[in-house]
Design a protein around this nucleic acid. Structure first.
Length: 119
DNA sequence: AATGTGACATACC
DNA sequence: TGGTATGCCACAT
C-alpha cells in the first residue's frame, strides 16, 4: 500500500487548520497571520496563512477573514474583499476602530491563539 | 519545468 | 529608521 496512497491531503489540511483557528476568533477581536502560523507550528509560513485566506472562499466553514491582519494591525488584505471597504466595515461593526487602514489600539484587541487556545 | 509573485515576518545593516 | 535579504510554499504563467 505504500506508494499508492495520495499525499496531497497534508497540505489541504494546513488550510483547513487555518480556517478552523480563524473561525475561533471571538467577535470584536483580531489576530495576525504570523500568530496563526506559529500556532500551527509553521512560524515562517505566515504567507501560507494569507493564501489560506485567499482560498477561504471555497472553504466549507465560515471564515471571518476580516479578523486577520498583519503584525502592524494594517488591513493588508482589504483589497481582496468585495467590496474592499467591506473589511473595515465588518471590523467597525464589531466595535473595532480603523483609521487609515490600520486598527486603533491593535494590541488591545489582539487575540493570540497560542494563549487563548492553550490546551 | 522553471521562474516569478505574494492577504507575512524576522534579521541585518 | 528605513531599506534589503531571506525563509516559506502555493499558484500563475
Amino acid at each position: 500500500m505504500p506508494g499508492f496512497v495520495s499525499e496531497n491531503k497534508d497540505k489541504s489540511d494546513f488550510f483547513e487548520q487555518v480556517w478552523q483557528v480563524v473561525a475561533l476568533i471571538p467577535k470584536g477581536r483580531v489576530t495576525s497571520y504570523g500568530a496563526i502560523a506559529k500556532y500551527l507550528g509553521r512560524v515562517k509560513s505566515a504567507r501560507m496563512v494569507g493564501w489560506a485566506m485567499n482560498a477561504s472562499h471555497h472553504a466549507k466553514i465560515n471564515v471571518p477573514a476580516h479578523r486577520v491582519v498583519n503584525r502592524n494591525g494594517l488591513l493588508t488584505g482589504k483589497a481582496h474583499f468585495n467590496p474592499p471597504e467591506k473589511m473595515q466595515q465588518l471590523l467597525e461593526s464589531e466595535g473595532i476602530k480603523v483609521v487609515e487602514n490600520q486598527i486603533v489600539d491593535f494590541e488591545k484587541y489582539f487575540w493570540d491563539p497560542m494563549k487563548e487556545l492553550l490546551s
